[in-house]
């Protein structure tokens, strides 16, 4: 039950980490790579605060063994913006539309929204709500989150496709 050296490609950067097989991706991101933007709200796969993208799909990093992520491409909240001042349209919309309160669910919400828009660039309100089925928020009642995702989608859609 020794540690294994695994390779993670996180936000385009390659890391080699020695991990015990039972450690989760969420723990390794937070504790070994110091990428603390990924939050742990339940550690049971129910709240979505730990959502990251693995090979382009949103996954709960608290249910993903780090060893399972060996050589996978991972995107965390820290990797979404292009530069320190350059927010992704989803991030920008979350700020502008008041979709952030305590902020603890926010990284996971944004990555779930990213997954949704990657698969469905022009979602209806209902589709946005369905796309957030795995992300709980206690502050906002979701309204402004849904609004922000709609606004980001409209902004990101190529001309003529947006609402």
């Amino acid at each position: 039950m020794a540690k294994e050296i695994i390779e993670l490609i996180v936000n385009g950067d390659r890391y080699e980490v020695a991990v015990e097989p039972w450690r989760t991706l969420a723990e390794v991101l937070r504790e070994d790579l110091n990428l603390t933007g990924t939050k742990i709200g339940c550690n049971q796969g129910d709240c979505g605060a730990c959502t990251v993208l693995m090979e382009g799909r949103s996954v709960s990093s608290c249910l993903t063994l780090a060893a399972e992520a060996h050589q996978r491409e991972i995107v965390t909240i820290e990797g979404l913006a292009q530069g320190p001042e350059d927010l992704h349209p989803l991030q920008e919309a979350f700020v502008e539309h008041g979709a952030v309160q305590c902020g603890y669910c926010t990284p996971g919400m944004i990555l779930s929204a990213k997954h949704l828009l990657d698969h469905n660039p022009t979602p209806s309100e209902q589709e946005i709500r369905q796309g957030l089925s795995g992300n709980l928020c206690r502050c906002t009642g979701y309204s402004k989150i849904v609004e922000a995702i709609g606004a980001a989608a409209a902004k990101m859609a190529p001309a003529g496709e947006g609402e």
Binding site: D46, T51, S58, V59, S60, L63, Q130, L132, S133, G134
Partner: peptide
């Protein structure tokens, strides 16, 4: 069933 993330995994 479950959530988007769990269906993805």
């Amino acid at each position: 069933m479950a959530t988007v993330q769990i269906r993805n995994m």
